[in-house]
């Protein structure tokens, strides 16, 4: 589905990604783990065209998408749920969802909006409410629903569980599973590694702009180093984990 090779991204002269390569197979959930500042959001922003790579290639179904502006990437079927939700505060819930369908010309938009409402009945109730007045959890639902409105084949999700109550986090991850089962590929950036690995098929671990590990999610879940670094487990030996 998406193939990234030797991707370098800089902020000015500061390197943020230093040659990462990864592969996201169709129909799967792939997680990208890493601590703050490792380059996770940078990776997503580069895929969706918000940042221009300095070097490297990105192929979506074999077609180069590096260097495309964001609006063209959306048209290729990639949708991005940005970090911090970034909903349009002064628009209604419905208008936000309509913005999600901005690139579409087909007649199925109303049907897809119904499907978003099935996924998140809360949004249906608040349909005509101004989005800025929603709670944090509802805003996250709206951000995900809005991204789904473009009918993407690849959904990029940046920290969808950030700042949500545990009950809502569970709900968001159930929805991620549901979206995948409908055939959408998902690339998930998460700090909540336990949740991410429980829903993902495979995962990559990013550290200071480089991929330092990857594998089946189930295997990574048992990896003591991963458990230590991202699941908050104490080191097994007296060795310094840092």
């Amino acid at each position: 589905m998406l193939e990234i090779e030797d991707l370098h991204v800089h902020y000015g002269s500061i390197p943020a990604l230093r040659g990462i390569s990864l592969f996201i197979p169709r129909g799967e959930v792939v997680a990208l783990l890493g601590s703050n500042g490792a380059g996770k959001s940078t990776t997503l922003k580069t895929i969706s065209g918000l940042l221009k790579p300095k070097q490297g290639t990105m192929r979506l179904n074999g077609e180069r998408i590096d260097g495309l502006p964001p609006y063209a990437v959306v048209q290729k079927g990639v949708s991005h749920v940005p970090e911090g939700r970034r909903i349009f505060n002064r628009m209604t819930v419905r208008e936000n969802l309509e913005m999600g369908a901005y690139t579409r010309r087909d007649g199925e938009i109303a049907r897809d909006m119904e499907r978003v409402f099935e996924l998140f009945p809360r949004l249906a109730e608040r349909c005509n409410q101004v989005a800025g007045t929603l709670s944090g959890g509802e805003q996250q639902m709206l951000a995900i629903g809005r991204a789904l409105m473009s009918n993407p084949s690849l959904l990029l999700m940046d920290e969808p569980s950030l700042g949500l109550a545990p009950r809502l986090v569970e709900m968001i991850f159930r929805v991620i599973e549901e979206i995948r089962s409908r055939g959408t590929t998902i690339f998930l950036v998460e700090q909540n590694a336990l949740m991410a690995l429980s829903v993902a098929r495979m995962a990559y671990v990013l550290e200071t702009g480089q991929i330092v590990g990857s594998g089946e999610a189930a295997v990574l879940l048992r990896d003591p180093k991963v458990r230590q670094a991202y699941l908050g487990e104490p080191p097994e030996s007296a060795e310094n984990p840092g």
Binding site: L50, P70, H80, P82, R86, I87, F88, M91, E95, T103
Partner: peptide, 17 residues
């Protein structure tokens, strides 16, 4: 709607296409 979206948040508007 596109004009209002750009006024509110141009980066996110571009993510909408």
């Amino acid at each position: 709607r596109a004009i209002r979206a750009v006024a509110q948040d141009p980066e996110t508007a571009s993510l909408m296409g």
